[in-house]
Design a protein around this nucleic acid. Sequence first.
RNA 1: CGGGCUGUGGCUCAGCUUGGUAGAGCGCUGCGUUCGGGACGCAGAGGCCGUGGGUUCAAAUCCCACCAGCCCGACCA
Length: 502
Amino acid sequence: MQTAITPTRADNFPEWYQQVIKAADLAENSDVRGCMIIKPWGWGIWENVQRQLDAMFKATGHVNAYFPLFIPLSFLEKEAEHVEGFAKECAVVTHHRLEAKDGKLVPAGELNEPLVVRPTSETIIGAAYARWVQSYRDLPVLINQWANVVRWEMRPRLFLRTAEFLWQEGHTAHETMEEALVETEKMLGVYEKFAREHLALPVFTGEKSESERFPGAVSTLCIEAMVQDRKAIQAGTSHFLGQNFSRASGIEFATRDGGKEFAWTTSWGVSTRLIGTLIMAHSDDDGLVLPPRVAPSQIVILPVLAKEESRAAVLQAAGELAAALRVQSAFGEPIRVEIDRRDAGGGVKNWEWIKKGVPLRVEIGPRDLEKGVVAVSRRDRGPKEKEFPASGDFVATAGALLEAIQAGLLERATAFRDEHTRVIETGEEFRAFFTPKNAAQPEIHGGFALAHWDGTAETEEMIKEELKVTIRCIPRDANPEPGVCPFSGRPSARRVVFAKSY
RNA sequence: CGGGCUGUGGCUCAGCUUGGUAGAGCGCUGCGUUCGGGACGCAGAGGCCGUGGGUUCAAAUCCCACCAGCCCGACCA
């Protein structure tokens, strides 16, 4: 059977991913290595992610602000582990002027202190908080910013790992450790909920091991999703920073009893990587599949313009249908509808929208007009499947239909994840699970392994060396099951989630 | 930053081994036939063959240097 995307997922997963992005017109590589151009359809997804997440941040008491792109080099030096973590991938601005020389522009006007393009903003925000926070009465500070950051990556991949990417970073400062811990958990909860309810992604939540922790954090919580090649992808992180950064930046306040204490801070973020995760989790061999909640357009109307004599009537009916749908709602928002009036072949247009992943396609032609019906195709079904509800019925149920598609995607992704999540007891089982059965096409294999771990960095490192498998997260069950580490034979407090990862 | 490969119309690539007038498919433009399913015919536009140097009567083709990109490693949201 011919598929819209070649190669298929099974044939070559990484190449399939690139082709889906291209076919859906989401983004492309730019003239600057590692930096992508996000095209309107891809940007539309990000806008929805932003708007919906932002509402959740506001609902949990946060406000937005904006901090500079440039960070003085000296700021980055303040937190030792932080420096070590990010120094290798920083873009540095050293000049502030260009001069023409032999027909070329050369940098001139060297800066006294080089500026680092933010890889993250803990240090510069910390410096501001140090000024803003004088008393316990000034706490908590609950600020988020939507921004771009730069991490000079050697091997970029669209959305998953780009030198410049877009994200939000929340930075909070609290009076007590407990309060900061609650905040860290709360935002992890927001991410988990957003992933599940908006992106239809079931995620594991837990804590990172020391080796995977954010540089400078006391602990890092994360959400980990599984995509269709069964690899794990870190989709969001929430860090408890203790007093590390407040000490480095001097965020000190007068306590209730007249003493002095450093504030307890957190930071948390999700990035455009969510879009890459979304693509790899839901899409199929005919292209992108979008959860309705974040689809830029949820319904596309495709007027059948084949015959000149019916053209005007069909276009008018399409316009009326769109207007009727736009006053309906799905997920508590007005339904997003667009009409594709282009005078191209019906098949071509239809396939374009399949590849773009629009949840519902509605064809309306002269025969439908006579019968008062519309031809509805769902992206989560086969490309040729159509239903013919009465136009009015479709309008009335469209919101519910979108919600059902959203629920179906979550169900499908959850079933997939569960199918490829295994409780593993022995080292042999573990190795078998993570060894490709087909060495020629090793992309798709394995999954999540729930196995015991002795808690040492040595064991973790050994597994990473041998199998390229890492601990994705340490779940925080209320009643962890103790056991024996299959790699070292030492006791283990709990099972952890192992997987190959992006 | 190591190891391998590749730079030729907008895109994907052939041509290079054996030097001799720049090619194909897709896309694009126009006209026509189609069109409730990823259509077809005809006509057309579009290229200092990555950059610089060398060899030669003659270089996309051979040689040298440089630049850029891709893949595989190390690193990472």
